[in-house]
Design a protein around this nucleic acid. Structure first.
Lengths: 215, 215
DNA sequence: TTTAGTTATTGACACGGTGTCAGTGTACGC
DNA sequence: GCGTACACTGACACCGTGTCAATAACTAAA
């Protein structure tokens, strides 16, 4: 009675995961806009209509993917932070991790970008909410690193409110990656390679946070 | 014979402009995705099919709007630069102008963002090409301002290749504006107001380019 | 002025995608 | 065995895009 219901829930969750898996495969393959619900259904070997039992609409499915993306991001950033002691280094490590993430999982980055470029309409129960929450957690890591940096004097104390700094650096890095991924070949026309661009922006970010004594 | 053909060309151009006008009105009103070709046709008082004589598809129409957006951007940036003599001030003025632009013409900013977040497939004759060209011109203004700043010593000389700097600052400002426009209310939850965010990022940008002597 | 040819314009269509719903199976609880 | 609740599906309605053959409007030559 009880465990049978539990199994049902479990199976439902597994099925849900399979759907997201299928969607992710297709996403990585051809980009979100080109993915149709029919393809997802086929790939997950169920009928299209059933998708709408698990996800209200295509956007909701995207948000489910977004949550995954943010989850991984959080893990990677946490790991990146753990590898360093000084705040500046942690911040830089996060930037580096973000770039590596975007290169390794372009579709995840795309999902994040889509989420960030979307004004919210917060229905608490939805995937969108979970997505936002995960996003907050990631931002929290950045804030913590900045706080640590100010504390250990590797980041100048007068840089401002850590949250404000975090958001700004976030926008910065995100903008850089977005430009690099979509306009990589165009940049090459100007004699700028993508790695060079990334390295430069990291360097700039570092010089931004450095106290007057350090280079 | 000749002038009659000229009139035709002229009328065709005017009609084209009317279509873009209509599209722009709707764009500003409800966002690009919600705009249908049918609505544009109605608003321009012609049949939907005729739109496809003037524009290959909806995207092509978007690029036509993008060209307009970039055109205006170029004018505003040029004017902003003209109001200052020192390079740093010119760069900051551009940043400020970009923010004002995004606030005054959100749909133009959106069009630019869509363009920049789109990998190119350059068919020379198309609107996409014109759009890219206009974009290059705008970037050129930034590069010139940075060059001027290095020359007049208001920007530190070792900042790097002006083009690289320009692209990076561009990505930065773009990222900031995008975040501010789409996540403005979310930011408020963290106690960050949009103007504050903008002012801070401008300040940061300035400190980035400043030579060691200045604050 | 008629006619032939070119250009502008349209209605109607095919296609593809989304979201919905009544209805069919299927396994569990009795 | 039986009914209820659940997983699941086929078929539908709707909407938006892009195309095309057909028509209207206009121009140039007779």
């Amino acid at each position: 009675m009880s465990y049978i219901a539990a199994r049902r829930v479990e199976e439902k969750e597994r099925r849900r995961g399979e759907i997201v898996d299928a969607a992710e495969r297709l996403y990585a393959e051809k980009g979100w806009d080109a993915v149709t619900m029919d393809q997802v259904a086929r790939s997950a070997r169920l009928s299209r209509a059933l998708l709408y039992v698990y996800f209200r609409d295509k956007e909701e499915l995207l948000f489910a993917l977004g949550e995954r993306a943010m989850q991984l991001q959080r893990e990677l950033f946490t790991a990146a932070v753990a590898r360093h002691v000084r705040g500046v280094d942690q911040v830089e490590a996060i930037g580096r991790a973000y770039m590596a993430y975007a290169e390794t999982y372009p579709h995840y980055f795309d999902a994040c970008a889509r989420f960030h470029a979307h004004s919210m309409s917060p229905e608490p129960g939805s995937n969108e909410g979970a997505c936002a929450l995960a996003g907050d957690a990631v931002l929290g890591i950045v804030v913590a690193a900045i706080r640590a940096g100010i504390e250990d004097r590797s980041i100048r104390a007068d840089i401002g409110d850590p949250m404000l700094v975090a958001v700004t650096l976030w926008a910065f890095t995100h903008g850089v990656i977005q430009l690099a991924t979509t306009k990589g070949t165009e940049l090459a026309r100007f004699g700028i390679s993508v790695p060079e661009f990334g390295a430069y922006s990291l360097q700039l970010m570092r010089s931004l946070t450095a106290p007057l004594t350090a280079g």
